[in-house]
Amino acid sequence: MTDVPDAADEEQRPEHLFKPGQSGNPKGRPKGSRNKLGEAFIQALYADFEEHGAETIAAVRVEKPDQYLKVVASILPREVKVTTEVDLSDEELDQRIRQLAAALDLAIGGKGGAGEAVGGKAEAPRPQPAGPVPPVH
């Protein structure tokens, strides 16, 4: 079967239907017509928020925390892309980590910090188990 209509298809097509490639509205929609409803809705919503916004948010947070969290999640960006233009050496990075740790009042052991060189190679610190490790079967 092919997608190209044959003469029989053209004869069976009612007169009131559009022919392939023909638009039902060749001039398009009037400029701004689609946005009128959206603009009116946003204006009404803004006016209502100005009057009741903070109290409503507080009431929803207390009475319907699940809905409150849905709203918060819906306005957050789905993806956060972090880029930096700074290219730091290992020593500069270690110094920054120590400065941040000091600001957060954290203790970092060893002279090399988290990426302390062992035998000339930088290694990530190994996590320590929180309790006894269960046997593997």
Rank of each mutant, 00 (worst) to 15 (best):
107 A>T: 15
84 T>A: 00
127 P>C: 02
118 V>Y: 06
18 F>K: 06
121 K>S: 04
50 E>G: 11
127 P>R: 08
85 E>F: 12
66 D>I: 08
78 R>N: 01
22 Q>T: 15
126 R>Y: 06
87 D>R: 11
100 L>S: 07
77 P>N: 10
6 D>V: 09
73 A>Y: 03
89 S>E: 07
94 D>W: 05
91 E>N: 04
18 F>Q: 12
103 A>K: 10
6 D>W: 00
82 V>H: 00
4 V>Y: 03
28 G>L: 00
6 D>G: 11
77 P>Y: 05
65 P>W: 08
11 E>W: 04
93 L>K: 09
79 E>M: 05
17 L>N: 05
31 K>T: 15
110 G>Q: 07
12 Q>M: 14
28 G>R: 07
104 L>Y: 05
115 G>C: 01
129 P>T: 12
34 R>E: 03
133 V>P: 13
34 R>F: 04
85 E>D: 11
1 M>A: 15
70 K>L: 04
48 D>N: 02
19 K>H: 04
27 K>S: 12
62 V>W: 02
56 T>W: 05
136 V>K: 12
86 V>C: 03
121 K>W: 08
46 Y>C: 11
64 K>V: 07
63 E>V: 13
128 Q>E: 14
86 V>K: 13
7 A>E: 05
109 G>M: 12
56 T>G: 05
97 I>K: 02
61 R>V: 03
32 G>Y: 12
90 D>E: 14
117 A>S: 06
34 R>I: 12
123 E>Q: 10
72 V>M: 02
44 A>G: 14
9 D>F: 05
95 Q>K: 15
122 A>T: 14
32 G>L: 08
50 E>R: 13
80 V>R: 11
12 Q>Y: 09
12 Q>D: 15
8 A>W: 10
80 V>W: 12
122 A>G: 04
89 S>Y: 10
73 A>H: 11
14 P>I: 13
88 L>Q: 04
113 G>Q: 01
53 G>L: 05
81 K>A: 03
100 L>N: 01
124 A>V: 02
54 A>D: 10
88 L>W: 04
64 K>S: 03
115 G>R: 12
48 D>K: 09
119 G>R: 04
124 A>S: 11
37 L>W: 04
73 A>N: 06
102 A>G: 03
60 V>H: 01
21 G>K: 01
41 F>L: 15
59 A>W: 03
130 A>S: 12
29 R>I: 15
86 V>L: 06
81 K>L: 15
80 V>E: 02
44 A>L: 14
77 P>L: 09
42 I>G: 08
57 I>Y: 01
21 G>E: 09
13 R>E: 11
59 A>C: 02
34 R>Y: 06
43 Q>H: 01
130 A>G: 07
47 A>C: 00
112 G>F: 07
64 K>E: 14
88 L>I: 01
39 E>R: 05
117 A>N: 03
78 R>W: 01
126 R>Q: 15
109 G>F: 00
91 E>Y: 11
22 Q>K: 03
13 R>K: 13
117 A>I: 00
131 G>F: 10
52 H>Q: 07
103 A>G: 15
33 S>F: 14
125 P>V: 01
16 H>P: 07
123 E>M: 13
109 G>Y: 02
45 L>C: 07
22 Q>Y: 00
10 E>Q: 11
27 K>I: 14
8 A>S: 03
67 Q>I: 02
9 D>H: 07
121 K>V: 05
35 N>M: 10
85 E>R: 11
126 R>L: 13
10 E>S: 12
15 E>N: 13
69 L>M: 09
40 A>L: 12
